[in-house]
Structure formats: C-alpha cells, structure tokens
Design a protein around this nucleic acid. Structure first.
Lengths: 160, 160
DNA sequence: GATTATTCGTTAACATGGTAAGCATATCCG
DNA sequence: CGGATATGCTTACCATGTTAACGAATAATC
C-alpha cells in the first residue's frame, strides 16, 4: 500500500454527514458480507451442478416432505416468478416432483424425489465443512452476536 | 401431518446438528436483512427510473470525479460484465460519459455528466430520509454494532 | 347461483449475477 | 524487434431478480 495520496483535503464533495459514505451504507455492508460468504459455497455447489438458489429450494424441501409453491417461495426467500423457473429446471432434472391437489387445483404440491434427496445427501458434507470454516474464522461468539443482530434488524425493518 | 412414513430407517435423515437450520444459515440471514432494507429503497429509486445497481454506480461516481471501469467495478461491487451493460444504459440516457485515455486505450474513463449529477441531487434527499428511518428503527447503538460486525465478518472471510 | 373479487401459479419483459470466452491493446522478455 | 503474456473491457450464455399482467380456479357477495 504505497499509494497514500487518496487521503487529501477533499472539500467534502457533495456526499457528507447523515448521508453515509458509499462504502459504509448498510445495504452495501450486507451485500459485501454476504458475497464473502457465498464465494466459498458457489464453486462447491457448481461442482454438483447447482446454483445457490436451486440449493436453497432443495434445502427447504428436505425439511418438510412437501409444500405448496407459495410456502416454498416464502421458505426459500425466492419470489414466485423466479421459483417457477427454478422448479421447471429441477423437475426437468428429476430432482423434484409437482402434484395438483384435487380440492384446490390452483395449488401445486412440491416434493423432493429420491434422486433429489440423494443429491442433497451428497452435498451436505461439503456444505457442513464450509459452515465449520466460517464459524471458525468468525468465532462462535461473534457469530452468535451477528445472528442476533441480523435477525433483529430484519424484524425491526420488516414491520412498519 | 398424517404421513409419517418419511421417517424410516434412513441413517438420520441427513439434516441435523452442526448443519444449521435452513432459516438460520448465515447467507440466509444476510439476504433477508438486506432485503428488508432494500424494500424501502427500491420503489423510491424506481420512481426516478433507476435500479439499485444503477444508483450504486452513480453514487460511486459522485464521490470521485472520474474513474476507470475497473475501479468503478470494485467501488460499486458490480462485476465487469454487469457493469458494462449498466454503463451502456446510463450512457444512452446521458447520465454518464465514457472517454478513452490516449496512453492506454484499453481503459475507459467514466464520469458523471451534468445531467447525472443533477439526478443524483434529486435522489439524495429521499435516500437520506430512508437512511434516517432505518437508523431510527434500529437505534444508533445497534446500528454501530451491526456495521462493525459486518465489516469484520467480511474481512475475516475474504482473506483465507 | 351468477357476478365479482381473490388467490395461486405462471408467463412476459427487462435488468442484473456469474462464468467463460473474445478482442484489442500493453507489457514482458528473449 | 517480435512473439508470448498479461490486462481492460466487452460479448455470450444461462440463471435469477423485479415488476406487471395473465389465466385458471376458488371464495365472497348479493
């Protein structure tokens, strides 16, 4: 870091006080932190032919043996239009299955196939490793703090 | 939940312990927190015909009167391919300008036009309002904690 | 019970994310 | 010098994000 010239007088060029510096805006910090985490997962998932979002869908499905598309959308935090495309993809690959309940034929019950569960089982150990590495890099304490803060942040901002 | 057959012999249905619940994985928490914040900004930006990313680019440019595309990419946290398209868009609307330095004609100097700066000026007050609302909802204290934690998280995870 | 309003999922249209490859220009180095 | 390498940006391709509108099916209202 030999270049030290960027630290000049700068008569405060427009951006100032209660408008946070670009580098320090909350959305930016959240984005960068998330990117730092995901950089570790993506290559691994890609090795299994999965995107981050496809993996989110599979994970959500594992925990409940079948849900409506709406529930799945909420659980995976993927909006219906995106989810719709993702499900087409996963169905085409035989990882999930869609059924139409007779009583309400607007809905679609989504469930993992055996193939889907099997893939999940193959990915989990790798995922686990990354989580461990992250937990170790951060320390259990800061990790817990961060979790709590993020959750409260979301709660306080969502309702209002 | 009348169907109880999925709980068969299966050597522990894979998902458990040190593999965090889906709802509580770090990437998920970061994503949801960020979404809670951005939900407030997007409609406002949309009112000015801007996407979140276009706004990031403009903000980055305001703070420095001209940068190379690479610097801009790093500053706005948008990868070169996306940035390239965004710049075409903004240039077409007369919000930014591109110039080719003579000494290195691979590079591209990007700068805001007067029109671009003007738009920035019109958006800032609204952006400020949202930031205030967020700061108020969270409280200055938690806000500071969160900033520090996020920044440290990123640092610890990026290098390794 | 026919009309209206809601709901659920999908498609459409445009913009971005992510990876790989392309192309031009600069730089290295024998 | 001149060919091999590296750099800066763009294109290409596929997947997803975001908003709006659509279509089928159900629920609500009179």
């Amino acid at each position: 870091m030999s270049t030290e010239r960027r630290r000049q007088a700068q008569p405060a060029p427009v951006s100032n006080r209660d408008f946070p510096d670009f580098e320090h805006s909350l959305p930016m910090l959240l984005l960068r932190a998330r990117e730092a985490v995901m950089e570790r997962f993506r290559p691994m998932l890609r090795g299994f032919g999965l995107t981050e979002q496809q993996w989110r869908v599979i994970r959500a499905l594992v925990e409940s043996s079948g849900m409506d598309a709406s529930e799945l959308s909420a659980a995976s935090y993927i909006k219906p239009p995106s989810l719709s495309r993702i499900l087409q993809n996963l169905e085409g690959r035989g990882l999930i299955r869609r059924r139409k309940p007779r009583r309400d034929r607007r809905r679609a019950r989504i469930a993992l196939t055996a193939r889907g569960r099997q893939l999940f089982g193959r990915v989990v150990p790798h995922s686990r490793e990354h989580y461990s590495a992250i937990a170790q890099a951060l320390g259990a304490e800061k990790m817990a703090e961060l979790y709590a803060l993020l959750d409260e942040t979301r709660k306080r901002l969502e309702l209002e």
